[in-house]
Design a protein around this nucleic acid. Structure first.
Lengths: 192, 192
DNA sequence: CTCAGATCCTAGCACCGCTAGACAATCGAG
DNA sequence: CTCGATTGTCTAGCGGTGCTAGGATCTGAG
């Protein structure tokens, strides 16, 4: 049995390698540069090997997205843990969110711009995605205000952050003045 | 001279046909279906003709984006003209924005998701883009609140709308509850 | 009528995602 | 230890993509 176990381990290891390499390549040169050929060459296997792990390219994107969602949840919780005053908490959350998007553009794209074949806002939504939303909810729910559903409030706040993140990175918004925008957003949206 | 003029007119006409066909095809089957071959076939010319009008596919996307920006500006001004009370004005603007994005997803993608090779937020930004932003500013500037730069406020409000539009259409947000989200956004962000 | 220039198309390049089928390595039964 | 079956991997290739070189055809001025 041990031989099979070793093989399974090696297989899992190779799968991690594929995802990590895809992510690395995407961060370095953009997702357009992540072709099955280049990816195969980097992991030093032939193309068909990729298809023994994933149905296709979109599933690889999806895997990167899930990894990113988990990291994002960690980053947001780390930024807000220990910060008790609501205002500072929400500001820290917003900063952490935008910071993650700016530092990991390819991962952010995999999550929210590209088609990774993932289900959102449904029962069969993968756990890391639900958890990332939960991480938002943990800090935002408490400032939703009276009579406002925390889920709804979180959605709106999230949408605002997402809009800022994407428009800024795509060159649609001048990137110099991020901080005042965050302050304005927090000041107005959150009921403190 | 008249012969040359006629040729120039026909050429301009064909260019409009290309853009209109690309847009139509994109709305019908998505931008992935807009290939140079299919586009050429639909306009009943060969592929290279496209390249005598545009440098490449991205420029065609850019042309659709510019057309869309002009229409969007018209739609937003139409929705807000005559509405004097600030609250109703901003709400009407937000609805018009989201409505345009929902009704013209391919055009919206050309504008804000895809690379159409357009410059944003700079001096050499094409006029239609500046004007669309101006249309937002016209209704939003007056509710920025004291001491808040109208431009900055408009950017933040726009980012929120953009986030809602994209997340909703990409299935990242449940689409049923658009209206409450709009109300929440307007209530909180605008200083009335 | 001639012929240069404008106009357009055929054919092809290098690349893409993906897969069929050949081949080699490994395993388990006798 | 042998040998068929299974598993793993690769080479080669399919139909598609954006884009372009070069030849054919059409047009209008002299």
């Amino acid at each position: 049995m041990s031989v099979q176990e070793r093989k399974q381990r090696e297989r899992a290891e190779r799968e991690r390698l594929i995802v990590a390499t895809a992510r690395e390549l995407a961060e370095q040169q953009g997702w357009d540069a992540v072709t099955t050929r280049r990816l195969a060459e980097r992991i030093e296997y032939s193309q068909p090997v990729l298809y023994s792990h994933f149905r296709g390219k979109r599933e690889i994107i999806g895997a990167v997205a899930l990894e990113g969602a988990a990291e994002m949840a960690v980053a947001m919780r780390a930024a807000t843990s220990g910060v008790t005053r609501p205002r500072e908490r929400v500001t820290a959350l917003a900063r952490a969110y935008l910071d993650f998007a700016a530092r990991n553009p390819a991962v952010y794209d995999a999550l929210f711009q590209l088609d990774g074949g993932l289900a959102f806002a449904q029962e069969d939504t993968p756990e890391p995605l639900k958890d990332a939303f939960a991480a938002l909810l943990e800090s935002l729910g408490e400032v939703a205000g009276e009579g406002v559903d925390p889920g709804l409030f979180t959605e709106v706040f999230w949408a605002s952050l997402h809009g800022m993140a994407t428009l800024t990175r795509a060159g649609r918004l001048p990137p110099e003045v991020i901080e005042p925008r965050v302050e304005l957003l927090v000041d107005r949206l959150a009921m403190l």
